[in-house]
Computed example of a mutant assay.
Amino acid sequence: MHVDCGTCTVRGAACTGCVVTVLLGAPPEGVAWDETERAALGVLAGSGLVPPLRLVRPVDQGGRPAVRHAG
């Protein structure tokens, strides 16, 4: 999974409640997590220890992400 903070439509407004900012500080341009790391973050967020990922990508008219990233 590649999280590109530069394409997040709620960047700034939701950064303080996002796991990326909690773990890494100010929002970077992007971060990559593998499946094991994503699972661990899900457990931590589900337990209330960190906030969930707040990434919101823009969508095209068909409801698909307008910007696609490898991940």
Rank of each mutant, 00 (worst) to 15 (best):
residue 1 M to G: 08
residue 1 M to L: 10
residue 2 H to I: 10
residue 2 H to K: 15
residue 2 H to Y: 09
residue 3 V to R: 14
residue 4 D to I: 12
residue 4 D to K: 14
residue 5 C to L: 12
residue 5 C to Q: 09
residue 5 C to Y: 10
residue 8 C to L: 14
residue 8 C to R: 12
residue 9 T to C: 06
residue 9 T to L: 12
residue 13 A to P: 05
residue 14 A to C: 05
residue 14 A to L: 10
residue 14 A to D: 14
residue 14 A to M: 13
residue 16 T to F: 04
residue 16 T to V: 11
residue 17 G to H: 05
residue 17 G to D: 04
residue 19 V to P: 00
residue 19 V to Q: 15
residue 20 V to G: 06
residue 20 V to C: 09
residue 21 T to F: 07
residue 21 T to P: 08
residue 22 V to E: 08
residue 22 V to N: 03
residue 22 V to R: 13
residue 22 V to W: 04
residue 23 L to T: 15
residue 23 L to V: 09
residue 24 L to G: 04
residue 24 L to C: 15
residue 24 L to W: 02
residue 25 G to P: 13
residue 25 G to E: 03
residue 26 A to N: 11
residue 26 A to I: 10
residue 26 A to F: 15
residue 27 P to C: 07
residue 28 P to R: 06
residue 28 P to M: 06
residue 29 E to N: 04
residue 30 G to A: 14
residue 30 G to E: 11
residue 30 G to C: 03
residue 32 A to M: 04
residue 34 D to M: 01
residue 34 D to V: 08
residue 34 D to G: 11
residue 35 E to S: 13
residue 35 E to G: 15
residue 35 E to R: 11
residue 35 E to K: 12
residue 35 E to I: 01
residue 35 E to H: 08
residue 35 E to M: 06
residue 38 R to C: 04
residue 38 R to V: 07
residue 38 R to T: 03
residue 41 L to V: 01
residue 41 L to Y: 03
residue 41 L to M: 05
residue 41 L to D: 01
residue 43 V to I: 12
residue 43 V to A: 09
residue 45 A to K: 01
residue 46 G to Q: 06
residue 47 S to N: 03
residue 47 S to A: 14
residue 48 G to Q: 10
residue 48 G to R: 04
residue 48 G to A: 11
residue 50 V to D: 09
residue 51 P to M: 10
residue 51 P to C: 10
residue 51 P to Y: 13
residue 52 P to C: 08
residue 53 L to C: 15
residue 54 R to S: 13
residue 56 V to G: 09
residue 57 R to T: 14
residue 58 P to L: 02
residue 58 P to R: 12
residue 58 P to Y: 03
residue 58 P to C: 02
residue 60 D to R: 02
residue 60 D to S: 05
residue 61 Q to M: 02
residue 61 Q to D: 15
residue 62 G to K: 13
residue 62 G to Y: 00
residue 63 G to A: 08
residue 64 R to Y: 00
residue 64 R to G: 03
residue 65 P to I: 11
residue 66 A to W: 03
residue 67 V to M: 11
residue 67 V to S: 03
residue 67 V to Y: 08
residue 68 R to F: 00
residue 68 R to Y: 01
residue 68 R to G: 05
residue 68 R to E: 06
residue 68 R to I: 12
residue 68 R to P: 02
residue 69 H to L: 14
residue 69 H to K: 08
residue 70 A to D: 12
residue 70 A to H: 12
residue 70 A to T: 13
residue 70 A to P: 12
residue 71 G to T: 12
residue 71 G to Y: 08
residue 71 G to A: 14
